[in-house]
Design a protein around this nucleic acid. Structure first.
Lengths: 133, 133
DNA sequence: TAGAAATACGACTAAATTGGTCGTATTAAA
DNA sequence: TTTAATACGACCAATTTAGTCGTATTTCTA
């Protein structure tokens, strides 16, 4: 269906909430507000932290805050962190050795789709948190 | 990973091949040329036929040919026929009653992503077979 | 200094989606 | 009438994604 995964949606929801609140937020708080399973939310926030989009404070009174300017957090960033590389087709992204057409050298759509894919990535890179108003 | 399904890839490969050959092609022929499982290829061609992108000739010496001008066959067409509606997020596409955030009225990303999604669809609608050279 | 509230994270299970197969029907040319 | 083709629904297998569990670590506060 060519859609963003549920997890990335959760990530975007959380980032927007954290941005708007503009102070330390806990995983539980976001989980409660948006009916997202706590453990799942926590793991996603941890991924975003590891990737440098959020910074975290451990311990009691801890939580997460944005580690970057919201105009520097693109949808593409979020999706790539949570779902892995964006690729309309994977032959051009990951050099998949599992694509029969690629391996046999018979694929007739690789190059053109590669170009289209790059345009798409550019597009997603240009849309940032601040565009999500 | 936000990628087109294998089946849609098969569909695009087939359409491009049929376009370039410019005469009746059988499912077996495409299957053989591109190492695509025959039954699978056949079903995809049938879907594209039902949707009006291809026309078919039954019986011996039968096969498929384009039913439209290649400049009128967009990538979006193909994906929607094979994978179903294109939607970065599904709240804005299918009125999914399974989205908890949507149902509880707490989703903070629905509208902005809806707009972004529309742009994306426009983009995929503008890319046609003739762009896949 | 103990307990509670929080992040961190790997391993696992469950659910959903997707890819592929099978069987059977239908059509039309040779 | 046989054969080569499309048509199609039902089914199974594989992969991917979502969600859970257990445990460790950090740090505030009483």
């Amino acid at each position: 269906m060519l859609k963003v995964s549920r997890k990335s949606e959760y990530g975007l929801i959380a980032l927007k909430y954290i941005w708007e609140k503009n102070s330390l937020c806990t995983a539980r708080e976001i989980s409660d507000n948006f009916f997202i399973p706590l453990e799942n939310m926590a793991k996603i926030l941890q991924s975003l932290t590891r990737a440098g989009l959020l910074s975290s404070v451990k311990g009691v009174q801890g939580g997460y805050r944005l580690a970057r300017n919201p105009s520097e957090i693109s949808i593409a960033n979020v999706i790539e962190i949570i779902d892995g590389p964006i690729g309309i087709v994977d032959c051009e992204t990951t050099q998949k050795t599992t694509c029969v057409q690629y391996c046999r050298g018979v694929c007739n759509i690789k190059k053109p789709l590669g170009k289209i894919q790059n345009k798409f990535k550019e597009f997603l890179n240009e849309v940032t948190l601040v565009d999500m108003v």
